[in-house]
C-alpha cells in the first residue's frame, strides 16, 4: 500500500529558534495520527507546515493526489495547493471562530466549499448543508442562523461540517476539543470518531490531551523541543513509553 501522505526531513526555524526539525513519517489511507507534546514543543508549527499554512525551511511533504499521484505540496503552485486545501484536505482550528465566517449563516458556512469548487445549484447546496448539519447533530432549523448565535460545541461541530462537506481524504485538526467543557468534549470526540470511521478519513490531530489520542489515533508522535522523541502505535506508546519525556507525559495524565 502506498502512503496517502509522506513527510521527509521537515524543518522550520524562527530566526535561531527551532520550530520543528528532522520530522519524517508516512500516513496511510484511513489512518489517524496523533501528535502530542506540551505547548512550545513544535506540534502546532509542524501541523501548520504540513497543511501549507507555514512555509518550512527544508524538507518535503508528499501527498497522493487524485489526478497526478504523489506530489510535493511544498513545490506545488499556489492555486493547486489552495484547491487541495478546499477539496481533498480539511483543517479544523482549535478556535471555531478561526475556521468559520461568523457573519455568514450556518448554511452558507457549510456551502462555501461546495461553491468554491463550482456548485451552482442553490437547492442542492442547501440540501447538502442540511444533510451535514444533521450529521454533526445540529438542528436543520438553525440553517439560517449565524454561528455567533451557537454555543462553543455547536460552533466546533459546524466547523467540522464545513470542512467535511467536500468529502476530503485528509483532515488536519489543531486541538479540536480545546476550550470546550468536558461533557461537550466527550460528545465531540464521539462524533469525530464516528465520522473518521464512516468516511474512512485519514487525519493528523495535534493535541496536548492524551485522552483524545487514545480515543482517535492509531499512531502517535511525541514531540519535545521541536524534535520527535518517540513514535509508534498509540496503545504501545501510551502503555509502554520508552522515552523519559513520554513517561513523564503519561504519568502526569495518570496522576491527574
Amino acid at each position: 500500500m502506498t502512503p496517502l501522505f509522506s513527510v521527509r526531513d521537515l524543518r522550520k526555524t524562527y530566526g535561531g529558534r527551532i520550530g520543528c526539525t528532522d520530522v519524517s513519517f508516512d500516513l496511510y489511507p484511513g489512518e489517524v495520527m496523533g501528535i502530542v507534546g506540551e505547548s512550545g514543543s513544535g506540534k502546532s508549527t509542524l501541523l501548520n507546515c504540513l497543511a501549507g499554512h507555514l512555509a518550512p525551511d527544508a524538507g518535503q511533504v508528499f501527498y497522493d493526489t487524485r489526478h497526478s499521484g504523489m506530489l510535493d505540496t511544498l513545490r506545488m503552485a499556489e492555486p493547486e495547493r489552495r484547491m487541495l486545501g478546499r477539496t481533498d484536505w480539511a483543517f479544523v482550528h482549535q478556535n471555531a471562530r478561526d475556521g468559520l465566517r461568523m457573519s455568514v449563516s450556518a448554511g452558507g458556512n457549510v456551502g462555501e466549499r461546495l461553491m468554491a469548487v463550482g456548485a451552482r445549484h442553490y437547492g442542492q447546496i442547501r440540501a447538502a448543508a442540511t444533510d451535514w448539519l444533521g450529521r454533526v447533530e445540529i438542528d436543520a432549523g438553525r440553517i439560517d442562523d449565524r454561528p455567533s448565535a451557537f454555543s462553543g460545541g455547536m460552533q466546533q461541530r459546524l466547523q467540522i461540517a464545513r470542512n467535511l462537506v467536500t468529502g476530503p481524504r485528509l483532515v488536519f485538526m489543531d486541538e479540536p476539543t480545546g476550550g470546550l467543557d468536558v461533557s461537550v468534549q466527550a460528545r465531540l470526540l464521539d462524533l469525530l470518531r464516528g465520522l473518521v470511521r464512516d468516511m474512512g478519513l485519514s487525519a493528523i490531530i495535534v493535541t496536548h490531551d492524551l485522552a483524545v489520542v487514545r480515543l482517535l489515533a492509531d499512531r502517535l508522535m511525541v514531540m519535545k523541543g521541536g524534535h520527535v522523541v518517540e513514535s509508534g502505535l498509540t496503545d504501545q506508546v501510551l502503555d509502554d513509553p520508552q522515552h523519559g519525556y513520554t513517561q513523564l507525559l503519561v504519568s502526569s495524565v495518570l496522576q491527574a
Partner: peptide
C-alpha cells in the same frame, strides 16, 4: 482574483437567497 478563489462571491448570493 489571481487564484480564482471566488467561492465567497457565491456565498454572498447564497446568503441573499436564504434571507
Amino acid at each position: 482574483h489571481a487564484l480564482q478563489d471566488y467561492g465567497l462571491m457565491h456565498v454572498k448570493l447564497y446568503e441573499d437567497i436564504a434571507r
